Simulated assay, not measured.
Amino acid sequence: MRLRHRGGTPLHLGYCTNVHAAEDLDGVIAQFDVYAVPIRERLGSDVLGVGLWLAAPVAAALAADPALRARLRRELSARGLEVVTLNGFPYRSFQDPVVKHAVYHPDWTTHERLSYTLDLALVLADLLPDDVARGSVSTLPLAWRDPWDIGMADLAARRLDRLAAGLAAVESSTGRVVRVGFEPEPGCVVETTAQAVVRLADVDRDRLGICLDLAHLACAWEEPADALKELGRIGLPVVKVQLSAALESADPDALREYAEPRFLHQTRNPEGDAADDLDEAFERSLPGPWRVHYHVPLHVSPAAPLATTIPVMRAALAELVGGPRPLCDHFEVETYTWGVLPPALRPRTPGQLAAGIAAELEFARTELRDLGVRA
């Protein structure tokens, strides 16, 4: 959806398709009719933004074939869909029965991660609407924290230099600007915005920056105003914001039904006690309260003693769009965990999933409107 900041800057709001499992082009296009079009119609919007997730094989095929990219753009346009951002964090197989640590591979020490990200940038340059200034691609925060040493850090730094050069080449050949945002996440080499300021201080800030996932920010117990102030202090741009909410509870035992085998659910308390997954947090009896990296639908308030980190999201949005100029123009709802929610909360049909995503987008649109953003 296209919105407008009260200062006049266009803002883009969409949803991320990594909630769907397709890993070939025909499957990606089929999602549009099953989910995206019904979502757009429920919202009464002429145009719906979709933050595409393209697995590495389909990204490579599209990057190699201009005709395939033209086909994808036609398929989007015919359905009232547009793309300004891609999710390049998961490499492939993101909705497999077990994902866990596999989502962090290949990491930014590898040629595979660099090639995948540059493929996405080239694809996005051809998908961007003609009147949109730039595109964004989100990616993992370098790597999982272990193993990590000086040699790996140097290798990753060289990859990031090549990434910036590759993005410049995409701009030179297509005339379109694409920026890449590294997404701080608990357990990774870059867990927090404070670590981003240190580890990404020397990147090309015209082309590289931060993807700010608001559930991750909450799970790190960061204050949005402080985090954004630190990023602004060194001029590290927020190129994309993922609108997401994590689980929170003062009574950890109430979270047991959310322990599940597919995704990693990093758990933190405000004192800095940490576990890499819910099962581990229970085994170690971490003192509460807990915040858990478990993206939950934005518009749903769970029964007490459970809560979500929507207050953190609201505080972050106030900082991001509440001033005279927005600090970011790409906003993406990213609840990829619909399929692993407790059975009573889990959609059972594609129509129910589409309705849930539409409700999230309406919730997000209302939050932005309350801050003065308009259609």
Rank of each mutant, 00 (worst) to 15 (best):
A201M: 00
A201E: 13
V203E: 00
D204G: 01
D204H: 02
R205T: 08
R207F: 03
G209Q: 05
I210F: 11
I210C: 03
C211S: 14
C211I: 03
D213P: 11
D213H: 09
D213W: 08
A215V: 07
H216D: 07
H216P: 10
L217I: 09
L217S: 12
A218W: 08
A218K: 06
A218T: 06
C219T: 15
W221C: 05
W221Q: 05
E222V: 04
E222N: 09
E223G: 07
P224G: 10
P224Q: 08
P224T: 11
D226I: 15
D226N: 11
E230D: 15
L231T: 06
L231P: 13
G232K: 12
G232E: 14
R233P: 09
R233M: 08
R233W: 13
R233Y: 10
I234V: 15
I234Q: 03
I234D: 00
I234E: 01
G235F: 06
G235E: 07
G235Q: 12
L236S: 04
P237E: 02
V238Q: 08
V238P: 10
V239K: 07
V239R: 11
V241T: 11
V241W: 08
Q242V: 07
Q242K: 11
L243C: 13
A245M: 09
A246E: 06
A246M: 04
L247C: 10
L247S: 02
L247G: 07
E248L: 13
A250C: 01
A250K: 01
D251A: 11
P252K: 04
P252D: 04
D253K: 04
D253S: 15
D253V: 11
A254F: 02
R256W: 13
E257Q: 14
Y258W: 14
A259R: 11
A259P: 01
A259L: 09
P261N: 09
R262I: 04
R262F: 04
L264P: 01
H265Q: 12
H265V: 01
Q266N: 11
Q266S: 13
T267L: 08
T267M: 02
N269T: 02
P270V: 04
E271S: 15
E271W: 07
D273S: 13
D273Q: 13
A274Q: 06
A275I: 00
A275Q: 04
D277F: 00
L278W: 00
D279A: 15
D279Y: 06
E280T: 14
A281L: 02
A281C: 03
F282Y: 12
E283Y: 08
R284H: 09
R284Q: 12
R284L: 15
L286E: 05
P287C: 04
P287Y: 01
G288D: 00
G288T: 01
G288V: 00
G288H: 01
P289Q: 06
W290C: 02
W290A: 02
R291H: 01
R291W: 02
R291P: 00
R291D: 00
V292R: 06
Y294R: 09
Y294G: 09
Y294P: 09
V296L: 14
P297I: 09
V300E: 15
V300K: 03
S301A: 15
P302Q: 12
P302H: 08
P302G: 10
P302M: 08
P305E: 03
L306S: 03
L306F: 00
T308N: 07
T308A: 04
I310N: 10
P311C: 10
P311R: 05
V312A: 10
V312F: 05
M313I: 14
M313Q: 15
M313S: 12
R314C: 12
A315F: 03
A316F: 10
L317A: 08
L317Y: 05
L317V: 12
